[in-house]
Nucleic acid binder design. Sequence first.
DNA 1: ACTCAGATTTAGGGTAGGCTAAATCTGGGA
DNA 2: TCCCAGATTTAGCCTACCCTAAATCTGAGT
Lengths: 228, 228
Amino acid sequence: MNAALQHETLTRSVEDYLKAIYRLSPQGRAASTSEIAQRLELSPASVSGMVKRLSEQGLLEHVPYKGVQLTADGRRAALRMLRRHRLIEAYLVAFLGYTWDTVHEEAERLEHAVSDTMVERMAAVLGNPAVDPHGDPIPTSDGDIHETAGIPLSEVPAGARVEVRQVEESQPDRLRYIASLGLRPGVRFTVVDRQPFRGPITIEVAGRTHVVGSELGQVVRCAGDEDA
Amino acid sequence: MNAALQHETLTRSVEDYLKAIYRLSPQGRAASTSEIAQRLELSPASVSGMVKRLSEQGLLEHVPYKGVQLTADGRRAALRMLRRHRLIEAYLVAFLGYTWDTVHEEAERLEHAVSDTMVERMAAVLGNPAVDPHGDPIPTSDGDIHETAGIPLSEVPAGARVEVRQVEESQPDRLRYIASLGLRPGVRFTVVDRQPFRGPITIEVAGRTHVVGSELGQVVRCAGDEDA
DNA sequence: ACTCAGATTTAGGGTAGGCTAAATCTGGGA
DNA sequence: TCCCAGATTTAGCCTACCCTAAATCTGAGT
């Protein structure tokens, strides 16, 4: 467990790589070089180079030409960054007048700069929230995370009444659009109609009807409305 | 005025250099390579190299073997960092339970990461304070600063009643010691005795008498107590 | 006016992490 | 089974900063 040592040492770049790889590996699937490159907006060649360094450092497992997976140390570091990122987002919204479309960019920089102490103070004044403003779960300080992945809106059957759980989007303009439809975590709404072949989805939110594309259907994740 | 462009481009390193040079140049005196090196804990050779780059960028004026001065652009950037640093310190003390001995280090990292927007939001919720927790003046967002340099405690005549204005110290242990004497910005106290040749100074703070060394006398700056 | 100690700069080298171009691997379709 | 398109890696290069060691300048004191 040299992760404690590594905390002090990890560079911004490395922290970003680990976070990206975590996000790209649902239940431990391997992430490919090109996926990582795309997410970090770097060339695949650069990613190849960094991947080699990180696997030498023991932060990830690399099978050449096949992909990478985080080691326990790598996962720990990634979850630490995720906690920071999401707590910072929650803090900025709660105390500094940010809205969910503007917090991502700020948190992206702050997550590398705040101390553990500051993160925990923010968590405390927030009352240790379980989710961030987009509904994403906040890992605990000892690295637990409850992936409460709801189902994508695009897979909710027509007629169902559901609740928004998470909005997996970071682009401000898209988030503003989604907010303008009344969709945000915790909001209940009804799926009126869903066309096949990734066709448009008709929803009714707070009495108003909207038709949205399937791309949006992918990022809005919902949970069945148990108490309806 | 390409300073706006530069904002986006300045690296952490450059920001630190400019801030250090500003602090080392009271009323536009030139700062020497070795002073800068000492303050930033770098080798003089490294400073020489960076100084060359920065003067090519137009952020400072360098007369080889003589020293450097900030240009208008450089000064603007330095004051911007000073504003960030001091507002962050004030914010952390006011809202996140920091004490004046612990804020410096945190601010030192955050000042490079926060956006202008966030800085102004912090300023707003703080009510646009004029000074930070150490009594140092906070530059305005358009680069004004009121250097209210009080006189060092070591130069206050015996018998005078004065008020603490600024405590020019960033080391936590020293700040805790100073706080333990009851000295902090705004506190009134009396100089009971002062020995010559940088000798010890006897002060009375809130009815208690302390003897302090002249080194401390340099960092605690005071103002005559007008309304006594 | 000289000299030399100390300050400063230059020379040469290292690491981290980007990039493009070229080489190499992999797997799906003929 | 073979082949080639696309993915991946390697090779070679660049920038930003840092370092130590060596060269050079400056000015204070004789």
